[in-house]
Design a protein around this nucleic acid. Structure first.
Length: 268
DNA sequence: CAGATATGACAAC
DNA sequence: TTGTCCTATCTGG
């Protein structure tokens, strides 16, 4: 489930399992054989996450960059590692643990200029303490593009994906199609704060839950009335089902290449 | 067992 | 806006 919370969680996990340890790296599938050879035998000094981008910093300066894309997945476990099954792009081993990576959109070693370029094209990440949300607002406020597209644009906000954006817009009472230009500074502040709360909770619990684990901030003026059988999200993939707050049928429509979901009553 | 689907991003038109 | 790529999992026949 690779939105930003997953990546930050993985960074912490990998630091815990392999940080400060020398790793053996391989590419059972073969597609990252050269890169794995360059990492192998080095110490994993630290890990980091920027939006949906995961970094491993190895002794000697090598930086591994992984982007899971839509299908990428990590799995890990205690040694001994099982025989690799399926398309394992990268396998890391320490004496105590193994880690497999399958299906990433990116798995590559970056030199310093490439790393700088990557970080330079990312907007503020709600999960990072150094994030500057004003930068995102500046881009949003001068755009005619729909909020959904703007909030999913990683150069505007980093780490948000379809679920967080869909749910944050529901919680803000704004339709996905609202032009960025119409967003007032206070509304942006509320959305940003909400994304910070939602995504931090996601890092903690390891899944996206915008209903049960996280209450709507009072500043938004609306308390959720959640059916005890209610799901963990308000509107994402709930087309045709009753809104958890007002029971109006949730609507869906293609917004660009992605499905938008909204409650026509709660989101105006 | 084919086909559809998935929390993403990019290039090409 | 459309097509393409990465892989696993779920659906229906």
């Amino acid at each position: 489930m690779p939105e930003g919370h997953t990546i930050h969680r993985l960074a912490a996990r990998h630091r815990e399992l392999f940080g400060g340890r020398v790793v053996a790296a391989s590419s059972p599938q073969g597609r990252f054989a050269e890169g794995a050879a360059r990492i192998s035998g080095r110490e994993l000094v630290d890990t980091d996450a920027y939006g949906k981008h995961l970094l491993h910093r190895y002794a000697g300066g090598a930086v591994l960059h992984v982007h899971l894309g839509l299908y990428g997945k990590f799995s890990d476990g205690p040694a001994p590692a099982p025989l690799p099954v399926g398309e394992v792009r990268l396998r890391l081993l320490s004496p105590a643990n193994w880690l497999d990576l399958r299906g990433p959109a990116a798995c590559e070693l970056l030199d310093p200029p490439e790393l700088d370029a990557l970080l330079a094209r990312l907007g503020p990440d709600p999960l990072r303490a150094d994030a500057k949300p004003e930068r995102a607002y500046a881009a949003i406020a001068r755009s005619e593009r729909p909020l959904m597209a703007l909030l999913m644009d990683q150069s505007i906000v980093a780490g948000t994906g379809l679920i967080y954006v869909t749910e944050a817009l529901f919680r803000a009472g704004l339709r996905p199609t609202t032009p960025g230009r119409r967003l007032r500074p206070k509304q942006w502040a509320a959305i940003w704060d909400d994304l910070c709360v939602l995504m931090r909770s996601g890092v903690e619990v390891g899944r996206i839950d915008t209903v049960r684990s996280v209450h709507l901030p009072e500043a938004m003026g609306r308390a959720p009335r959640v059916d005890r059988h209610g799901g963990e999200v308000y509107v994402y993939r709930r087309a045709g089902q009753p809104c958890l707050v007002c029971a109006t049928k949730v609507r869906t429509a293609l917004q660009g290449a992605r499905n938008a979901y909204w409650c026509p009553t709660c989101q105006r």
